[in-house]
Structure formats: C-alpha cells, structure tokens
Design a protein around this nucleic acid. Structure first.
Lengths: 114, 114
DNA sequence: TATCGCTATTCATTTAAAAACATAATGAAA
DNA sequence: TTTCATTATGTTTTTAAATGAATAGCGATA
C-alpha cells in the first residue's frame, strides 16, 4: 500500500454581488492591456479573440464600482486602453489574495496522503 | 464612489502527481454511487452521461494508490459499484479541506472592497 | 439455462463556447 | 479632408466536450 503525495490546485474568483468580476485570466488580460496600451494587442498576446477580450473588459467595467479600463476611441493611433487606479488596485488585491490562499493551502496540505 | 462588497468563490482539486484526481463534481459522483449502489443510477441523478461517469470512476481508480470504487460485473442485479474505505476517506478529506479553505477565505475577505 | 440490470466500449450526434470574419464608427494629426 | 489603428458590434464558422444511442459481456439466482 504505497501512499501517494497529494497536490492541491485551486482557483479563486472575485465577485461583485453574484456576478463574476475577476479571475486569473482577466487579471492577465488587464496586465497585458497595461503593458501594451490596447485591448487588441493584449488579446493578440494571449490565445484570445479581440471580441472576447473586449467583452471581458466591458463586463469588468460594468461590474466594478469604478471602471478598471479607460478606453479611448479614434485619434492618432486609432485609440487605445489604459488601466485605471481602480484597475491597478484590483490586480494587486487579486494577486495578494491568491498568494495568501496558496500559502494556506501549501501549509495545510503538507501531510495529505492516500 | 460607492464601494461594492467583493465575494470570493473558489475551487480546489486534488492531484496525484500532476494528474487530476478529485474535484467537487467527482466527489458528488462518488457520494451518489455510495447512496445508489451503481454508477449508472448515480450518473442519472446528476446531469451526466453514464459514459462520462464510468470514465471518471476509472480515472480515479487508476490515479489513487488504492481504488476508490469497487465495481462488480453481472450477477443478481446486473452488477453494481460501491465505495471503498479509501474512497470514503478521500471524500471526507476533500470536504474537510474545502471547509478549511472556505473558512480561511471568508476570514481574509471580510474587508475587501472596490 | 433464461433472465435481468448493470458494467464496458464504440461510434454518431448534439451542443455550447470560442474563434474567425466582416464591417462600421471614431477622432487626432498630418 | 484623408489616413490610420483602434474600439465597437453583428454574423458565421470552428472546435472541443459531452451526450446519446447501440451493442456486447457478465454472472448470481430463479
């Protein structure tokens, strides 16, 4: 009867009310928007269609009390998108929370076997 | 600037090595097998095809060091399936772990706003 | 030895989510 | 006033996952 070590994986999501607001994927999207300055190039960088990326951004903006992405239309480069202070805070809080949970799970799972 | 309360949802998965072994859905499947005595009626009770249920059971048995479901073929009622001691333990440990994580997250998320 | 309901397995079909495609609309700047 | 890359939005196509259907095998028991 060999015992196997059990590893635990997890995911967390932030909700506002009962609507999904932020998860790992959306955080990555926000970070890429921050880095590239546009939804379209952020989407290109992940395996994601522009349409979906745009929709995600829109949902997040609708569901947060302050928008997380400021979008601009037309102009020099056609427009673009930037992360707001509220967006930066959301990203940071998500990472922090995820880290805490990871630490907790790592501690608690040390002696879990089958 | 109204702040919204943020709720956090999560899911955890048990892995043996780097293969998924157990998650919320599979735990429910095991519990239904336990209650009904067969994979087929357990599957019927959830929104799940017998095929998938059978495959899940098979995967779990392959990936655990001891099988979690004992299957019997033919005989009086055509056969059936029962949960082993190892299976019961797995279910119990999953629930316990999930509960601990839920408590941790509830505590940590008390003052999270946007 | 016939029956019965289950396990076991293959193959076709359905479905839902995402991608891909197409096309306006925008507005600063040259 | 033309250009440009982007946002914005509707429509079609692809893809992946699950379901559904069909069939064989099993074996205790009546």
């Amino acid at each position: 009867m060999t015992k196997n070590k059990v590893n635990i994986s997890f995911r967390i999501w932030f909700y506002t009310g009962n609507e999904k607001f932020l998860g790992k994927g959306r955080v990555e999207l926000l970070e890429r928007i921050d880095k590239t300055g546009s939804i379209s190039s952020a989407a290109k960088g992940m395996k994601m269609s522009y349409r979906q990326a745009w929709q995600m951004v829109n949902e997040m903006n609708e569901r947060a009390s302050e928008i997380v992405v400021e979008k601009s239309l037309g102009g020099k480069g056609g427009g673009g998108a930037t992360i707001t202070k509220a967006g930066e805070k959301a990203i940071q809080q998500f990472h922090e929370f995820e880290k805490k949970v990871a630490q907790f799970i790592a501690d608690e799972s040390k002696n879990l076997n089958f």
